[in-house]
Design a protein around this nucleic acid. Structure first.
Lengths: 204, 204
DNA sequence: ACATTATCTTAACATATGTTAATGAAGTTA
DNA sequence: TAACTTCATTAACATATGTTAAGATAATGT
């Protein structure tokens, strides 16, 4: 798949939300880069300063923390038409708190920091789109915060199944468990419970 | 304290970040409302649709969830110069997932939804300021998410002490505990541990 | 298809946190 | 000051989740 096709799909998708004029599209294409990633490749490593903000066009990526004891926590699973890096680290140009890896072959558009600050922040159409994106992410975070704060393993898993109905089968159990902040063993117990209560994972 | 003084301090504070032209200030003042709240008063209740976005000028407020079993979880403690409502509910004009109450006498500026969408979203200066605010909140949420996902009670409490050094003495222990997602009993055990290790809560 | 590896399940036991309740400390009101 | 209320601490016990390890199942590479 050629870059031009990637951009074409990209602009077609965002045109459903806001119209970007031809001149701005051209500038965008000239200043950003299309990246192809293979499954298992790491986009950015915890501790690196991300110089680009990646927009996921295709595939599936995972944001994850490794803590001091080497434990792995999944922060989020990114799906197409989302930014899939660390806003926090990119915006502040400091070290990313987490790594990002491709769980499946993926395609993303890399937006360099300087271009982001000059172009995106100074044109109303881009700023509106970016703000909507931020709002969407913020809303997700608010829900996630509630889930993590108030829920036990079981309720967090049930919420996960609602939030990501198509991901349950594409993800490893240990990735799901690490997203919920529990162990794979504990997740397996919860799944067993649900099955005993009549839940059918093939036809949820 | 009169409204005009509140607005004066408000514009003075934000002018350190971005300049708002006189004409926009006037429109802002004409379309927003200053609200005075007493300690213990509730600004918005879980389940209500917030028609205004509140900006906290003075005081201390608490955002909190009550779950089905009646348990109380503190989502955040808002300090001056922050929005202190639910972005998610306000932006989408749907039911707030949490309540907001004043823990101390507080003053806020209420921004009505329609005005927010028409005025703030269509003037670059406001949109830039708003975007920065969103970015700041998003960054906070990203840190909070990590804390909730990866930390146990003890490490979350230590992080809380770093994040809110002046709040430890102004808040009840059970509010702190509910912010960390643990019980007051568990928090008390952690504090006892820290004291035994030589930590001094009077001179931290 | 086979061998190999990776993942998931299950069980036994360990640990952290929750629950309940009693006590003590601090702040409020009469 | 005394009586009362609210809050924090502490202890005993209950429960959910973690840890380790074994075996079963599924995925992968040759």
């Amino acid at each position: 798949m050629k870059d031009i096709e990637i951009y074409s799909v990209f602009f077609s998708n965002i045109s459903r939300i806001i119209e970007i004029p031809e001149e701005r599209r051209k500038v965008f294409i000239d200043n950003t880069t299309v990246i192809f990633m293979k499954r298992g490749e790491v986009y950015v490593r915890q501790g690196e300063i991300p110089r680009e903000l990646p927009f996921l066009c295709r595939g599936l990526m995972r944001k994850f923390y490794i803590d001091n004891e080497g434990r792995d926590f999944s922060k989020f699973f990114s799906q197409p038409n989302e930014f899939s890096g660390s806003f926090a680290a990119f915006l502040q140009q400091n070290e990313s708190l987490f790594s990002v890896e491709a769980l499946e072959d993926s395609i993303l558009i890399d937006i360099p920091y300087d271009f982001f600050r000059s172009e995106i922040h100074s044109h109303l159409c881009w700023l509106q789109l970016y703000t909507m994106s931020l709002e969407k992410f913020y809303i997700l975070k608010e829900l996630r915060e509630e889930q993590l704060l108030t829920g036990d393993g079981r309720s967090k898993y049930i919420q996960f199944l609602k939030d990501f109905p198509h991901l349950e089968k594409r993800l490893k159990q240990y990735h799901i468990a690490s997203y919920l902040g529990i162990t794979p063993v504990s997740l397996s117990r919860i799944r067993m419970e649900l099955v005993n209560e009549g839940f059918d994972f093939d036809n949820p």
